[in-house]
Nucleic acid binder design. Sequence first.
DNA 1: ATTAAAAGCCAC
DNA 2: AAACGTGGCTTTTAAT
Length: 565
Amino acid sequence: MVTGLPGGQRRVQPDELPALVRAVEAAGPTPPRWVWADTNRFYPGLLRSGVRVERAHDLRLCHRILRHSTLTANSALATAAPGGPWDTMPAVSLTDEPARVPDTLFGPPEPKVAEAGPDPVEALRHQHDAVAASPGQGRLGLLLAAESAGALAAAEMHHAGLPWRADVHDAVLTEVLGPRPRHGERPERLEELVQRIRAALDAPASLNPDSHPDLLKAMNLAGVGAKTLRKWELERLSHPVIEPLLEYKSLSRLLTANGWNWLDSWVRDGRFRTEYVVGGVVTGRWATNGGGALQLPKNVRAAVVADPGWTFVVADAAQLEPRVLAAMAGDEAMAAAGRGDDGEGIDMYAGIVATGAVDTRERAKIGMLGAMYGGTTGVSGQVRPQLAAAFPRAMALVDDAARAGERGEVVTTHLGRSSPLPGETWQELQAGAYSADDGAGDAAARARSYTRSWGRFTRNFVVQGTAAEWALCWLASLRRRLWQLGMADGGDGVEGAVPAPFTERAHLVSFVHDEVVVHTPISLADAVADEVRAAAAEAGRLLFGDFPVAFPLSVATATCYTDAE
DNA sequence: ATTAAAAGCCAC
DNA sequence: AAACGTGGCTTTTAAT
């Protein structure tokens, strides 16, 4: 059922939906906002039919935010008994089996009764009520719009896919590992390294370097003196086995995580498609399902090559989190340190050095990261009082968030996404800390440790979560701008031709926390770069209004991802 | 036999 | 330098 149409409501068959949506999108000067239970349930099919929508409201994603936000704590939505349909509705996954087309051998399929599901109109009303009554000058409304736009962008990026040259990927692997081995065998380079490791340890040919206990035992016998196999620890030891072992670990990682098997599994028809999970991280950052798309190692990014006649515009936000912290804390001094004289933005860590608060860029960086992560030792600990003196408001914000977490309270981002409550472990440990009888060591110490750990989580939550909100607004703005760019240019230049979504226009192909990649016709690359910057400025205004904080980007254009970094 | 946890490295 | 935030993913090992 589609309601709210110009001509009232209509019941449509699934195959009628694309034409209907296309018509309504094209009808008026103001595009509609489609409200649906889950973007992934409707949008992939529309995209396959060549239909792109401008705006949407994802009821499931928005419900999840409103259910837990401190800004809507008194709403009917948030005070309802838990376990309602919108609380328990599972996300639709793009990898779910598509509804199988029934066999037609025995005549047309039985008409299916659409599953009832909860009433979306009623849900929308509840969500509107909750947002309308929330404090914060429309911040929650902005968050819901950005979250929903993100869901559209995520589906579109999956639809378009990240251009991926399997032949280039294979060449990279062959270069460092040797030719692809037969099933069950090690590549040449790895086999050589295994031999060298065994020889250096005087170990039998049965030693499997992938078995950590066995390897550690053999290393102990050879007197290497390693307690763990962590890279940074091994690097500090001197023994003939260290060099081949580190090399083995590095190559082995490449093979298992992004080797030929990965290529076979994830690259089809020149595209890598992952499933972006909008809001998949507690802080609001995205997660992905499949292919490890958020952790593609630098050396395999060489396989990300633009189509002929196309190129990439790669942009990332410089020092996003400290800038977000400065803005949300209203810390003028800290914002000024990242702004520079022209107001366009300078390297923030260099700017902090320029204020005289800290003596080197490296120490400024470690100190800021430590303040946001809760580091207390080493350089973090040394620089901290200096930063606290120079930027008291920013440091107070993260310290307050940490203390709230330690008290077991919830913290909330700038736009209104709230942290979860600590789990049962927290409660139990607090109770246990006061019980005299505890057989398993120092209960009070464990409670303290867990409490501090939760404080580090809430400390980081407010910054990482607000940075994710900025990035979401950036992405949403850029998505809209890229579409407009396509309208202006006409895509392939054919008069009157409407470019198909994402095959003839500049389009997003990757988003990783604070970095975007746009795949664009070469002729539009400069315009895309302008829009990427304009979108960043717009995101800053949307979140922080007139507060004078800069969000400079590093932007590069290249036909290969590797060359843009 | 299946599942969960641990260890480790990759990304931001 | 050290072990301070969020994750995904793979392999081995332990547990059920």
